[in-house]
Simulated scan of single mutants.
Amino acid sequence: MTRRSGKREKAISSTSDDRRKPEKSGAEAPPKAVGESGSSRKVLGLKKDNRHKKIMRNYRKMQRARRKDPYAGFRQYPTNKLADLDLIHKYIRQLKESDGFDVDVYPGLCFAAVYVPRPEFKEPCQLRTDAIEMSQLAVAQFNSDNRDSKGVPYEFQGIERVVSYSCNGEIFLITFQAREAETDDIKTFQAKVFDPPGLDEEEEREVMLVRLKEL
């Protein structure tokens, strides 16, 4: 009886030792390094061939082009809702006749209606404050450009109309009035100003165009 029990105990102990071996070998295996996983290799590969930088470089290039031409790289997408045809024709006519400055109608959100009239500037709001600041910046630019030709400086008076379109930031087409300092004559100006995104600290507002409005 004693011998049988001894064999049985030996068998049980050997079986338990065998069961513990995989646990022991698994515990001793060194953990995988972070860079050895498949997903990590893909991320490193993306950084290595600079595809992300190339995508961002092309995006910034297109956005700079859209500052001058809002339809640069433009693709027409279908829209579910069609605006009134008479309103669309009037909108297009105003765009062509005034280079986008004298647009006071809007056919609604559709693929070709890039220029948006902003009548809310007439009420106290952030847009009104920004439009005044940009107009003053444009007047200063106009005075600086015409200083050599002995042009009479102008002083900002008030805003008539604001139109805008988006381009990783926003382009504002502002029609405003300014007073000639010497004669007190009031003249109407047009200014095109780029306003960078609020989080972009590397760029400042840029006066792309300022001119006297043709009558």
Rank of each mutant, 00 (worst) to 15 (best):
E120K: 11
E120M: 12
F121Y: 11
K122I: 01
K122G: 03
E123I: 02
E123G: 00
P124Q: 08
P124C: 04
C125D: 04
C125T: 12
C125H: 05
Q126H: 10
Q126W: 08
R128Y: 08
T129E: 15
T129N: 14
T129D: 15
D130H: 08
D130Q: 12
D130E: 10
A131V: 07
A131N: 03
A131P: 02
I132V: 14
E133D: 12
E133S: 15
S135P: 04
S135M: 01
Q136P: 02
Q136D: 01
Q136M: 14
Q136C: 10
L137G: 07
L137F: 07
A138F: 11
A138T: 02
V139E: 11
V139P: 09
A140C: 09
A140Q: 15
Q141P: 01
Q141Y: 04
Q141H: 13
F142I: 00
F142G: 07
F142K: 10
N143V: 04
N143L: 07
N143F: 02
N143T: 06
S144Q: 15
S144E: 13
D145A: 15
D145G: 08
D145M: 14
N146A: 06
R147P: 01
D148Y: 12
S149W: 03
S149Y: 12
S149F: 12
S149E: 08
S149V: 09
K150L: 02
K150N: 14
G151N: 08
G151C: 02
V152I: 13
P153Q: 08
P153I: 00
Y154H: 14
Y154T: 00
Y154N: 06
E155H: 09
F156G: 09
Q157I: 09
G158R: 14
G158T: 04
G158W: 10
I159V: 14
I159F: 07
I159T: 10
E160D: 14
E160V: 06
E160G: 13
R161S: 11
V162S: 04
V162T: 03
V162H: 03
V162D: 04
V163Y: 04
V163S: 06
V163F: 00
V163H: 07
S164Q: 05
S164M: 06
S164N: 13
Y165D: 03
C167V: 13
C167E: 05
N168S: 07
N168Y: 12
G169R: 06
G169T: 04
G169Y: 06
E170D: 02
E170V: 13
E170K: 14
I171D: 04
I171L: 08
I171G: 06
F172R: 08
F172Y: 15
F172E: 03
F172K: 09
L173F: 00
L173E: 05
L173P: 01
I174K: 07
T175M: 11
T175N: 04
T175Q: 13
F176I: 01
F176T: 05
